[in-house]
Amino acid sequence: MNIFRLAGDMTHLASVLVLLLKIHTIKSCSGVSLKTQELYALVFATRYLDIFVTYVSFYNTVMKLIFLGSSFSIVWYIRRHRVVRRSYDKDQDTFRHLFLLLPCLVLALVINEKFTFKEVMWTFSIYLEAVAILPQLVLLQRTRNIDNLTGQYVFLLGAYRALYILNWIYRYFTEEHYVHWITWIAGIIQTLLYADFFYYYFQSWKNSVKLELPA
């Protein structure tokens, strides 16, 4: 475990906790895309299929349980919580899951390292994670008005991706030189999706004005 990987995991954890705490304390999920949250829950469920079979470390198991628990809790809050669900803006969050799910599934069936159920599911989760943020970004563009916590959530997620790329670069030079095309390309695409958001995030930060995305 290197410093980039640890920092990446911590920003990832922080992003999820920021979102969960926002929803839990202010009892509102305005500005949060349920579609993105459902996709993340599916990402974790398909990636951690072997959570109770393959043991890597105590750290890994605990983190996996936290990601699974938090992502399904967020979905539960938005769909089922008596108060929270009223703040969900269904009419704005219209991105179709299937447009992302189907291509990822097809791609995972075609491009994978091993054609086994576990491996295809793992690859599917990598592809899906790369694009799962799209409904959230579309929702932000559409509503334009972003509260601080939602902005921080997306910023932390982007930071996690950027740190993971540094982690792969570090690992490439310090460990065996195996080229992980699937993970790298999906990871780079995922990080690029945040570039536009980052631009406006830093602009608003520099000028200390409220974050607003252009329509």
Binding site: R5, D9, H12, T54, V56, S57, N60, M63, K64, F67, E113, W122, Y164, N167, W168, R171, E175, E176, H177, Y178, H180, T183
Partner: peptide
Amino acid sequence: IDADSLKDEL
């Protein structure tokens, strides 16, 4: 070379 070496990530 371990093809699974990134599987220890989250």
